[in-house]
Amino acid sequence: MSKGKFLAEFELYMMLALSRLGDSAYGVSIRQEIEQRTGRPVSIGAVYETLARLGDKGFVTFRISDPVPVPGGRSRKYFRLTAKGERALQHSAAMMFRMMDGLDLLPGSEGGR
């Protein structure tokens, strides 16, 4: 796997959020998902920038929805992982687990073999 196919930390969060949200992943839901789970402030600008970068790598694709059925409702840009993106996420997650294996890092874990 070339260097461009590895995921940076925030990219990994983004891919995990997309994987978790499925078909309802758009700017607001992705931002809130990462912010709530990591406790780290996330800006909408960073979300769109990272999604664009992942899109350039071929990991993410998007579709434009019909306008939301509320007064003044606008279209949303929904994102999802591509097959290539899912493989990259699995690869990164596997590497992460391999690196963590045997370390007492997660709260409540037994740790060590």
Partner: peptide
């Protein structure tokens, strides 16, 4: 532009 501004307005 439109999507980001719309997302911000929604939140």
């Amino acid at each position: 532009r439109g999507f980001l501004i719309s997302d911000l307005a929604e939140e």
